[in-house]
Each structure stands twice: as C-alpha cells, then as structure tokens.
C-alpha cells in the first residue's frame, strides 16, 4: 500500500499532533506514505464559490503531481478530500471540462490525465488495512470510553459522489476497534459550523453549540474527528461557547489518528497534550 500524501494547508500550519500521529500510525499498518512535494492549496469550498474554474485548476494541479508520482493520493483534511475527489470525479466524467482545465495547466507545464484515485485516511484504514488489523494492533484499549464521532461534512457528502465509496459508519467502526463505544446523538450529520467562520461568526457558534449540547446530552466523554476544521471548532470552540453562553462544556477532542496512536500503546508528548485547548486529562488515564 503506497500513497502520495497530501498534507494540505491547515494541518502543517496548526495541528502538528495530527501530523505526528499520522506519521507514527500509518506505517505500522504497512502503509507507505510518500510526501507530495510542491503542492498548492486544495482549494477549499470558499475558493470554489468565488471562482469555479480556479478551483478546478488548482485541485487538478495537485492531481497532476499524484499522476507524475504514479500513485493514488491520500488526504487527511475533509476540505482537501472534497476538492481533490470532486475535481477528479468531474474531470474524469467531462472531457470538455478537462480540456478547459488542461489549457490553464499548460501555463505551468502540467496536464491532467485522469489516471489516479483520491482517498481519505479513513478509506485507507477501512478498505485497505481493514478493521480487524486495526483492532489487532490495539494494545491499550479505550475500553468503555463514550465517543461522539464527528465525521465532518465532506467525508460523506455530497452523497452522489460518496455513494458506494464507503459506509457512513466507517469512522465509528474504526473508533470501536480501539475499544471505545460510539454513541448516537441528534444531528450527527450536521456541519460543525466551522465553514461559517469569517462569514457569520454568531451563526457558526450557534451551530457548534447545538452539536455540543446534543453530544453532551448523549453522554459523550470524548469527541473524535478526522477533519482539522471540525477539530478547531470543537476544541477551541468549546472555550468560546463556554464564555459566551455561560454553559459548561469540557469534552476532550481528538483526531482519530491520535486516538488510534494511543490505543496502539504510543503516548502523546507533553506538547501535544498542551496543544489541545480543551484538556485531555479526563481520558488519558496514564497515556501521557
């Protein structure tokens, strides 16, 4: 199993514990990750809404790098996943759009050919590695920990693209492989509110609060996500929501890669624990 690893912008700039955890966890399952060099922004939905053609061309340039490497791409961020998957799907299905994009890419000496696929880390763990192997690798299980999973919007939507790609509950199955219990909560499929930041901060905060209320009411002891934007919204967001609404929320938030890393018996360093704004202490139980 060999993939071109597309890091995106946010993780290397803000969420280093996610980066370190992926580097430690994936090779343990025989997944060889080859860093994609000289990439560019994916580009996320904000850029898509400003100019559709620019969105196509920027994502296609990244796809060209994967094609030059001759391997499929693995993404970690939901926004990156959405952009690269959607553009790859669009350009493969519509030759006239591909031709238009290739005219733009000729400016930078690239040509999109449609030779590779795009996967998320969850696809790779669920489909290529398999839940059983993940379970077998667990040495320090999170037995009984009640986890609210937050797959994020673009791991599963739009469904016309994702239908047939993966079971919606793949993340839950992988979380349960670590020994934890996943809980159901109202509006699980709803957005975290993060994409509204900078557009309508008040609405973004309200959306995040609705999700936190539902998670808390369902008894969540931990939130697990794969999306760096959802992570910020719930980890840092809990501080803001506590302050604004005068309500108590102290639910630790983990990237799935961090949860799996600890379940595999690898500890988080002190700086990683401190990088979480909502304290992890209630769930560490000797894992630091």
């Amino acid at each position: 199993m060999k993939y071109g690893l597309y890091w995106g912008c946010l993780i290397p700039a803000r969420e280093l514990s996610y980066e370190v955890s992926v580097n430690k966890v994936m090779p343990a399952f025989g997944v060889e990750l080859v860093k994609m060099e000289d990439t560019n922004c994916c580009a996320p939905f904000g850029i898509q809404s400003l100019d559709y053609t620019s969105w196509l061309a920027l994502a296609a340039r990244n796809l060209c790098i994967g094609e030059e490497m001759g391997i499929d791409i693995m993404t970690l961020c939901n926004d990156c996943y959405e952009s690269l998957l959607m553009v790859n799907t669009t350009l493969k299905a519509h030759p006239e759009v591909r031709n238009q994009v290739n005219e733009i890419l000729a400016e930078v000496g690239k040509e999109y050919k449609g030779k590779i696929d795009v996967k998320n880390m969850i696809d790779v763990l669920y489909d290529d590695v398999g839940v059983k192997k993940v379970k077998d690798a667990v040495e320090n299980p999170f037995t009984g920990l009640k986890v609210a999973t937050q797959p994020g919007c673009h791991l599963t939507k739009p469904k016309r693209i994702h239908f047939g790609v993966r079971e919606f509950d793949a993340l839950d199955e992988l979380v349960m492989a670590t020994g934890a219990d996943t809980i159901s909560y109202e509006r699980r499929e709803m957005c975290c509110g993060g994409p509204l930041r900078g557009i309508n901060d008040e609405l973004a905060r309200d959306v995040a609060r609705i999700k936190l209320v539902n998670m808390k009411n369902a008894g969540a002891e931990c939130i697990v996500t794969v999306c760096p934007f959802c992570f910020v919204e719930f980890d840092l967001g809990q501080l803001e929501i506590r302050r604004h609404f005068k309500e108590e929320y102290t639910i630790p938030v983990l990237h799935f890669a961090e949860l799996l890393r600890m379940a595999m018996g690898m500890k988080l360093d002190d700086w990683e624990i401190k990088s979480h704004r909502t304290p992890l202490a209630p769930i560490l139980n000797g894992r630091s």
């Binding site: 890091w7 290397p12 860093k35 060099e37 000289d38 990439t39 560019n40 922004c41 100019d51 053609t53 620019s54 061309a57 920027l58 340039r61 733009i104 890419l105 400016e107 930078v108």
Partner: peptide, 15 residues
C-alpha cells in the same frame, strides 16, 4: 511544506 506559489499565481492570473 513546500508550496508552488509561482505556479498558483500563474494559474490564478490565467483564470
């Protein structure tokens, strides 16, 4: 992480 800034600027100028 390395970034192809010049290529991005060329693409965005073209579009």
């Amino acid at each position: 992480h390395s970034t192809a800034t010049e290529d991005v600027q060329k693409i965005l100028k073209k579009t």
